[in-house]
Design a protein around this nucleic acid. Structure first.
Length: 151
DNA sequence: GCCAACGTTGGC
DNA sequence: GCCAACGTTGGC
């Protein structure tokens, strides 16, 4: 069992959207480092913290479960999609997605500002300088702390 | 809206 | 393969 943190902009797709949809194809990752995490590390049954970025209060807002292993992100082949990638080939897809199921919306979302004050979270990737990954792995300890502080 | 930080692209 | 220019992310 592994743990991850998934970023999303709430104006684009929020935890409420995920709760409404029950589950969703989580794609649109167009960064090679994040792509490698999606393609090579995430497995069915893994848990993920959902994080809202680029908003008034950036925060960990909920919990999801990976219910389908990585598969090619179909948006890369869709010329009408903003995630269209003309250089990606169907027999050698460049970008991947996973299916995420809604598990929980945190009663007390944990703001980024608060996370920075918690010693046990200080080595978390999310808090690193210039961090820009939309998918990142999370240690079990970090996962447990975030969950405990926001439930 | 600003800007620091980082990734990607492309000329050489 | 270097590196300048450019684009994007994301907190503030």
């Amino acid at each position: 069992m592994n743990y991850f943190l998934l970023k999303t902009e709430p104006t684009d797709y929020s935890i409420d959207d995920l709760r409404r949809d029950k589950k969703t194809s989580w794609g649109g990752v167009r960064n090679f480092q994040a792509r490698n995490i999606v393609r090579d590390e995430i497995k069915k049954g893994d848990f993920c913290i959902i994080y809202h970025s680029s908003c008034v209060i950036p925060a960990a807002v909920g919990l999801g479960e990976i219910v389908k292993a990585p598969y090619p992100d179909l948006m890369q082949f869709d010329s009408s999609s903003k995630y269209f990638d003309p250089t990606s080939k169907k027999d050698d897809p460049r970008w991947f997605a996973v299916e995420v199921k809604f598990k929980e919306k945190f009663l007390a979302p944990l703001p980024l500002e608060k996370m920075r004050t918690i010693k046990e979270l200080s080595d978390m990737r999310l808090l690193a300088r210039g961090n820009r990954l939309s998918f990142m792995s999370l240690s079990k300890m970090h996962f447990e702390i975030i969950k405990k502080l926001s439930s």
